[in-house]
Design a protein around this nucleic acid. Structure first.
Lengths: 228, 228
DNA sequence: ATTGGGAAATTGGGATACCAATATGGAATA
DNA sequence: TATTCCATATTGGTATCCCAATTTCCCAAT
């Protein structure tokens, strides 16, 4: 695999795992040393991550994209019609085997399974549904959205009942797809996105102070902006 | 402005204007000479265009993205819920002044106005509606979609009545936004996208032979794939 | 302790150098 | 004439190099 892709994957992982904090500054030369490649592949990787919105420019410098509550709100709003459409198309195009595979994914998450796994499956569920739609643009868009939501989902406080509710909604969506009840499935997907948004934003808003204390740049909605 | 952005803009324009044909091969060194910059900014520009889907890799080489009829179909499908959502949100958030500005744009297109202008306004209409939604992700997504549709729209045979129909639909959508009749506006947007898709795909399918003869790589739907 | 100013170090943007891999062209051969 | 095969040119990927623009940091003046 090309060095550029290796660096891209590693850096992306560091960002998504909060190994690099939101708002943190990076220099190309630091990355060059960190990943032992020259600046050329480093810059290519940065360019790609910038396109995904995981990295931004601050003047001439590079920063890990801060977590912006207003942006998260816009993302969930953007997601809503995508998820609805994905589910609608999945009803028309998915086979029983496809649905069963996703169901197995959900089933694998039981109390006791570790946090990372819940997090991954909670993301993949939506991507896999999008795949059932057969529309590559829908897949790409939902992948992008989930990546941008991912870090916030780590920071969210996951209570037992809220996790339970999310999974119940996932199951309900899947069941409706299986029965090919497209409009009900779409409506359920919209409900799920809205619930998710409410939980996420409420949690982050309440804990904003704590997040800042942990050194994360968290901006937007409610209090003053104060970019980094 | 940085050289990278200059090269990006110029190359993008060459692609969108069909100055570089779909499927055409480019070497980095040719671009370097063509735009008199070194490979560094050329490669950065290519990376960005690749992210937008206007440029692709073919093995190790770069090619202008071919026009893929199946992809266009998927794009219109993807667009549909975006446009509907944009229109719905515009109803909730747009002011009369915003609507009037877009109306003026439409009015500027009269018989006799040149093709480029119709083409541009036909694109900008959708982007501007998305802007009224206030959601930057919706704007970016629709910009991206319209860019990918743009070349096909040049190739489409625009008959007088079809152009008339498109503008009538634009006006109807705008009127419903003005009256804040969100659901009717969304339904009209969906209808418009579907009409557009039908016109576009019918036209291109009928003329596929002619397009190939003009040296364009046109793939997908109906006949054999035959990548490039 | 605070502030101002300026030299020095560092940074990102661009140009160039180098390399392995691939593509090309043409001569030798059938 | 058609085909094989190898020398050569070209290509994209990477590493460096150079430069102008910032940023950093130290020290003198307040």
């Amino acid at each position: 695999m090309s060095q550029m892709l290796q660096i891209y994957d590693q850096l992306r992982e560091m960002i998504l795992s909060l190994d690099l904090g939101p708002g943190e500054r990076m220099t190309e030369r630091w990355l060059e040393a960190r990943f032992q490649g020259s600046r050329t592949p480093v810059r290519a990787a940065l360019a790609r991550l910038e396109g995904e919105g995981l990295v931004q420019r601050e003047g001439r410098a590079w920063i890990v994209a801060p977590i912006d509550l207003r942006e998260l709100e816009a993302l969930e709003e953007f997601r809503e019609p995508l998820e609805a459409m994905a589910v609608r198309l999945a009803c028309a195009r998915a086979g029983e085997a496809d649905v069963a595979a996703i169901e197995a994914m959900l089933d694998a998450c039981q109390p006791g399974v570790k946090r990372e796994e819940w997090h991954r499956v909670g993301t993949d569920f939506h991507v896999e549904i999008a795949r059932l739609s057969g529309n590559p643009f829908l897949v790409r868009a939902i992948e992008g959205v989930m990546a941008l939501l991912s870090r916030a989902r780590w920071l969210e406080v996951w209570t037992e009942p809220s996790r339970e509710q999310a999974w119940a909604e996932h199951r309900r969506i899947l069941a409706l797809i299986r029965q090919k009840r497209a409009e009900e499935a779409a409506a359920e997907a919209v409900r799920h996105v809205r619930d998710t948004r409410d939980r996420l934003l409420r949690s982050l808003n309440e804990d904003r102070r704590g997040l800042r204390a942990r050194g994360f740049a968290v901006v937007g909605a409610g209090a003053g902006a104060g970019a980094r």
